[in-house]
């Protein structure tokens, strides 16, 4: 069985994380921002998995289960907020929803 080197796995996790981060920063649609956030979660989850398999321990997989649960909760709350925002502002453009300006 061919094992994937840890560095490859971490690299993939980093790329996923950066993709997500860039998505959060450049996307203006809130739905896409949420999607990018999920990608960042998965990047972090993948890092846990790789680290777990590297050390031969189950901790990484357990952390990933936690992460999945949290991501599900986050998405449900996040979508509810998005729904409310759209209801009030009639737009999903994050730049236009800037009423919290200091």
């Amino acid at each position: 069985m061919v094992t994937i080197p840890v560095s490859h796995g971490l690299l993939l996790a980093g790329i996923l994380f950066m993709l997500g981060l860039v998505g959060v920063m450049v996307r203006r649609n809130i739905i896409f921002i949420l999607l990018s956030l999920e990608i960042m979660f998965n990047g972090a989850g993948l890092a846990f998995m790789v680290a777990g398999s590297c050390w031969g321990q189950a901790d990484g997989q357990i952390m990933f289960l936690f992460l999945l649960a949290m991501a599900a909760a986050e998405v449900s709350v996040g979508l509810a907020l998005v729904f409310q925002l759209y209801h009030r502002n009639n737009t999903l453009d994050a730049d236009q929803i800037s009423t919290m300006r200091g």
Binding site: M25, R27, I33, A94, D95, I97, R101, G102
Partner: peptide, 17 residues
């Protein structure tokens, strides 16, 4: 400092990053 509080979520995310 209040200039940084422009209400744009993406700028905040950029700041955090």
């Amino acid at each position: 400092l209040s200039l940084t509080q422009n209400g744009q979520v993406r700028t905040y995310a950029f700041g955090i990053a």
